[in-house]
Computed example of a mutant assay.
Amino acid sequence: ASTHATDNKHHILLAASGSVATIKLPLIAAALAAHPTVSLRLLLTPSATHFLQSQSAEQPALESLAAIPRVDAIYQDADEWTVPWVRGNSILHIELRKWAHVMVVAPMSANTLAKMVHGVADNLLTSVIRAWDTTGLVDLYRKKLILVAPAMNTAMWEQPITGRQVGVLEGEWGVKVGGWVELLRPQEKTLSCGDTGNGAMYEWTGIVREVERRLGL
C-alpha cells in the first residue's frame, strides 16, 4: 500500500458479494475507470464469482475485467493466504484497507450485511470491512467511507432482522450521524427471481454518481 501513497490517484476498492446484481459490477467498474485519476481494485466473494463466468455479454468472465483501464487487480479469497505467513510478510486485508480511499460494496448480499453488522470476518471482503479504520487515526488519513448497496429478495429485505441491521448502518455508523458508512437503499422493481417489491440494488449509475461526488471526480 505504501508504494501507492503518493501516486495522486483516487483509490477505489470495488467489491461484490453473492447477489444477481453482481452482473452490474463490470458497468460500475468501467464507468469509474473513465476517470484518469482513478485506480481500481476489485474484490469478489466466492458466491459473487458465480455470476461472472462468461454466461453472456452481460456476464463476462471475471478475468476479463482486468482489461478495463485502471483496474489494477482482482482479488478473491484464495489471494489472502497464498503461502504460510512469516514475520515481516504483509497481510492482504490490511494492505487493501490501507490502500483504499473509499470502499464500495455493490451488491451487498443479505449474508454480507449480517456479517458486517455483527463483526464476522470469515472471508477477504468481510476481513477488510472488519479491519476498516473507522476513525482515520490509524492510517493517518481523513475518515474513509464504505458505501454499501444491499441487494436481496423482497422477503429478505422486509424481514425484521434486516431492519435492525440497516438501523445499525444508518443510525449508529452512518455518515449522517458522523460515521463511516453510507447505505444506498435498494429500489422497488420486479426482481430476477420474478418477485416484485423492494430489494433490487440501487441503480448502478446512481452508485457511480455517489462515488464521484464523494471523491470529487
Results as ranks from 00 to 15, higher is better:
N8K: 13
H11F: 04
L13Y: 07
A16W: 03
V20L: 10
L25W: 08
A30W: 05
P36L: 06
V38S: 13
V38Y: 12
L40D: 06
L44W: 07
L44P: 01
S47N: 11
H50P: 00
F51K: 00
F51T: 01
L52W: 01
Q59I: 00
P60G: 02
P60H: 03
L62P: 00
S64W: 00
I68H: 01
R70V: 07
D79R: 00
D79N: 14
N89H: 15
S90F: 01
I91F: 00
H93M: 00
L96R: 01
K98C: 08
M103G: 11
M108N: 04
T112N: 12
M116S: 14
M116C: 13
V117F: 08
V120D: 15
V120R: 11
A121C: 14
N123K: 05
L124Y: 09
L125R: 01
L125C: 04
I129Q: 02
W132L: 02
D133W: 10
L140D: 13
Y141K: 13
P150G: 03
P150D: 07
M152R: 05
M152I: 08
M156D: 12
Q159H: 09
Q159K: 14
P160K: 10
I161M: 12
T162N: 08
G163L: 03
V166S: 07
G167Q: 06
W173R: 14
W173L: 12
K176H: 14
G178I: 06
L184Q: 07
R185Y: 07
K189T: 15
L191W: 07
S192Q: 11
C193F: 07
G194I: 02
T196M: 03
T196R: 12
N198H: 10
E203D: 11
T205L: 14
V211C: 05
E212P: 07
R213Y: 09
